[in-house]
Simulated assay, not measured.
Amino acid sequence: MLTQTTTRVLEPSDLDAALAVLDREPVVNAFVTARVRVAGLDPWRLGGEMWGWYEDGMLRSLCYAGANLVPICATDRAVRGFADRARRAGRRCSSIVGPAEPTALLWRLLEPSWGPAREVRARQPLMVADRLSADVAPDPYVRRVRKDEMDTIMPACVAMFTEEVGVSPLAGDGGLLYQARVAELVGAGRSFARIDEHGQVVFKAEIGAATADACQIQGVWVAPEYRGRGLAAPGMSAVLRYALADVAPVASLYVNDFNLPARAAYRRVGFQEVGTFMSVLF
């Protein structure tokens, strides 16, 4: 039997069907699910299109096509359909990111027309925690960043982003979008830091994507002069405590496989590796 398949841009009326796909893997899909639950499927509000892959009239897989290209619950056939659409549209994203297997296939199909990438991070362990470890006490000095501390936290955020991604978030629009995102997280009470008596950020992290089922910790950073002093694990323990108490029953993050100190610190705090992400950076 031949299976009838098709891809198309989803419309606001497809919201329930899209959420049903996203909810199949609430931790893995937290980033996109959080956006969809706030913005729906209207491309202007969502910041991109949501592509759907249908088999015999049923929505099976998704692909978010915005600043990132993100395959969601994507089978090999769906990835090939998404790659065809992405190739025709041309590259508009700054990265491809998602579960390693479908992301790797998507990149293999797109690389001849989209390549070369600036960097490919093929293995980024996905880690989750649903409780605090008794082995690491939360840093009592890590707290929520106040709205009047934007000038204090912003340089640390820029330093973290530049170090992690390899380009400054201030490029292009002068950092307006990035500053707005930082301000959004501060305003929502999801930006955390340890700030010393001189007003310097020693440690920081944010709870980025958040749904009722899961949240994602991001932007973990220790000031270079404070590294090697054992601040990362207690700082992460403090952020995890806030996340589990105030945001969602499960917290996740993904980390570069070569960052062995970070992976060890996260494991000490209570995170376990449950999967692998992949990122292609342009």
Rank of each mutant, 00 (worst) to 15 (best):
R131H: 15
P224M: 15
L22R: 07
I72A: 04
R118S: 07
R267C: 10
V21M: 05
L2W: 05
T5L: 02
F282T: 12
I207K: 12
G115N: 10
P71E: 02
A100S: 07
V201P: 15
V222L: 15
A129V: 07
G235P: 11
L22T: 06
E164M: 04
R123M: 03
G219R: 10
S168H: 09
R241F: 03
T3I: 05
Q4H: 12
P26D: 11
V280D: 00
W221E: 10
D16N: 04
H198I: 11
K147H: 11
G47S: 11
W44M: 12
L10P: 09
A210M: 10
M50P: 04
A205C: 09
V280F: 01
A86H: 00
V165A: 15
P43E: 05
A122Y: 00
E225G: 15
I195T: 15
L253W: 04
L59T: 05
L41M: 06
D213L: 14
V28G: 08
D56V: 02
V38H: 05
D16C: 00
A248W: 01
S94H: 03
Q124R: 10
A134N: 13
E149M: 13
M236V: 08
A159D: 13
A210Y: 04
A265I: 01
P99G: 06
G219C: 14
V38A: 12
G189F: 01
S191G: 13
A18N: 06
R241W: 00
A232F: 00
D139G: 14
A134D: 15
N29A: 08
C73P: 03
P138S: 14
L15S: 08
C63S: 02
A251C: 10
L177M: 13
V247L: 07
R118T: 08
F203T: 11
L59M: 02
A100I: 00
L253S: 07
F271H: 02
A245L: 08
D14T: 07
E164S: 13
D257W: 01
E25S: 14
G172V: 06
Y141D: 15
L19I: 05
A205V: 11
G47N: 12
T5Q: 07
S133R: 11
G275L: 05
R123F: 03
L244S: 12
D257P: 00
L253E: 07
G270L: 00
F277G: 07
R121Q: 14
V36M: 10
G275M: 04
V38C: 01
E111M: 07
P234M: 06
V28L: 13
V158F: 06
Q272V: 08
R143P: 12
E49A: 01
A212K: 15
D246G: 08
T211W: 10
E197V: 14
L132C: 11
L46A: 13
A83R: 03
A129G: 11
T152I: 15
F282M: 07
S113C: 00
Q272G: 12
A104M: 03
F31S: 11
L22K: 09
A245H: 11
G81E: 02
P261I: 05
D56M: 00
P112H: 03
I195K: 11
V32Q: 08
D148H: 13
G166L: 12
V255I: 09
A212C: 12
L62W: 01
Y54A: 03
R60V: 11
P169Q: 13
E101P: 02
E273N: 01
R241L: 04
L185K: 15
